[in-house]
Design a protein around this nucleic acid. Structure first.
Lengths: 243, 243
DNA sequence: CGCGATTTTGAGCCATGTCAATCGGAGTGG
DNA sequence: CCACTCCGATTGACATGGCTCAAAATCGCG
């Protein structure tokens, strides 16, 4: 499990991104932001590949500052399904390991355990933060509808494009995407596990998209071109003619 | 959209089932149950095919007493995806129509608008009910993980069996399933839309399962035989040899 | 008894999976 | 600096699950 690129070389930068993400999802007040900033010193760090599920029976909420994580489940025959990806600004719900899914760090991960921070003093002016975290969690749930749609109705190319567009938009919201490209610390195998495809087919599909001049994906960097065509392919606009 | 069988011929029967379901999910106190019973007079009724999404911008929570519903989304090219099924005892979240998904009644449906009932008087001893409804909603969310797994990793037969086993267990919890069979007011097309398969292939797969003596599905009644084999197929047990 | 909805079946095609080999880059030890 | 190794990306050959089109066969209902 190598890391395609370093995330959060600058902690402050990571915090800004995470803050932007949470604000977008939940409308933080400046005071909330202040309080969050004060908490950064209590950062939790995990190496790539770490499993974050709580050992205790009660779930824990963690606010991601830097790095990527995912929810996944592994079947006894080693098939794997990734349910969602989390990036800075997202909130993770870490439940006991035997639960619906495991939470795994995909890169080096920095986060704050929200329950730990807010739980004990929830009523002393931190209700706003709590609500924000909950709202962020709800956004995660919303995305599951898109994911089910991808898996149930989309073709391989559509799934790939649809997911990449989602990730681009989310990264753009936290200022981690450029106009036409963004860094993606995922392996083609991760994409395959998320999209219900084989690695080989993900690769072939990427090749097709590359050939059509729509998507570049090399060295952890994704470039998306011809947004209109892509949007059509990803099912965001009424379908259009072929490229 | 014809109805395969009448649900809730006996309102009281429906209420008992719904109560059992909610209790299972949220641990109601006897007082809570009493309060719920008092609310039954304010029942909402919808015909099969009705769309329940709220017109108002705020979401509404509805407790299903009798009948089936589903969350679904229709793509511009008429592909359809069903995200979840709801039966008595489940709680529906009806959001504005342009949202992530539509909520559609699959049979005649009877339910109680929880927000309407509990919202205004939430703090007067009804907090328990509110919590129960929220807990029930969370159970719905949990099931989405299984659904994603089905769509992403399972073969047609596995998806079908896995879904039928889920529905059987849920019906059993509310006393609406017999030892080896239960009534299922769904069309093969509904199953197809939920499982990301074509109707034709659902039909063929059912035929295979029928031939193997595992599943009968006729006239809205499902019969499941040889549970061990089924469980293995549905991925509930470590895999076993062929039937 | 006829109609619309659903279920079944057949034939043929295409998307996607599997198996297996190669390639390329990054890190490691000598 | 080179040989080695590992992981991930690519590619080819081939198998097959699931889709489409189209037509019967059934069922529920008026």
């Amino acid at each position: 499990m190598s890391e395609l690129g370093e995330y959060s070389a600058l902690p402050e930068r990571g915090f800004e991104a995470a803050l932007a993400g949470l604000t977008r999802k939940a409308g933080l007040t400046p005071e909330d932001a202040q309080q969050l900033h004060a908490l950064v010193c209590e950062l939790e760090r995990y190496p790539a590949g770490a499993v974050l599920n709580s050992l205790a029976p009660s779930p824990r909420m963690k606010w991601v500052i830097a790095g990527w994580a995912c929810e996944m489940r592994v079947l006894p025959d080693s098939r794997r399904q990734i349910f969602s990806f989390q990036m800075p600004g997202d909130v993770l719900l870490c439940r006991p390991a035997h639960d619906a899914c495991a939470v795994v760090a995909l890169t080096r991960l920095e986060c704050i355990d929200v329950a730990q921070m807010l739980g004990p003093r929830r009523d002393r002016g931190r209700a706003g933060l709590w609500a924000a975290m909950t709202a962020a969690l709800a956004v995660n749930e919303e995305r599951k509808y898109d994911h089910i749609l991808r898996l149930g109705q989309h073709t391989a190319a559509e799934r790939l494009v649809h997911l990449l567009l989602e990730l681009r938009d989310r990264l753009a919201e936290i200022g981690m995407a450029e106009e036409h490209s963004f860094r993606l610390p995922l392996t083609q195998e991760h994409l395959a596990d998320a999209l219900g495809l084989s690695v080989v087919h993900v690769n072939r599909t990427l090749k097709v998209l590359r050939t059509r001049g729509l998507v570049e994906f090399r060295l952890g960097k994704v470039t998306l071109l011809r947004s209109e065509k892509l949007a059509a392919l990803g099912g965001r606009e009424p379908a259009a003619a072929e490229a």
